[in-house]
Amino acid sequence: MRQISVTVNGTRREADVEPRQLLVYFLRETLGLTGTNVGCDTSTCGSCTVLLDGQSVKSCTMLAVQADGHEVTTIEAMATNGELHPIQRAFHEHHGLQCGYCTPGMIMAADSLIREAAGPLSEAEVRIGLEGNLCRCTGYQNIVQAVMAASQEMQGGVKARAGKGGGS
């Protein structure tokens, strides 16, 4: 066992873990954060996507010990004070989910994608940006629409400001 200290959804969590424990099982079984799902065993499907220091990662392809000293954000922290995150709201409004199993991973991947982009994302950018997340229900169509809409809301001002020559 090894002691780790991970800041999960803003709270510092200390635990003794077996080195072989995957981050996704640390979240699900040790911390009880079952919103992050497991859909494959080959790092392909992206259902387990969380943010590590703000960047999307597949929590099935990290050991919990590798997260020691880092910040992890899961789907459970996306809504704040009862208010949905813009991406969550967009998935709801655009019917970007059916069974919902891939949805937490999609939302976390989308969040990272949107924040890394310089401005609102095109359809092609969203599609390639979500290549690490599989969905079997939606055909992706409404997921793509939802992420584009959320990107517009979250980043819509970026290009406008840049266009006016404004600095930071």
Partner: peptide, 9 residues
Amino acid sequence: VGDPQVRHR
């Protein structure tokens, strides 16, 4: 390489 999540790690 891989996908965005993979490239982050």
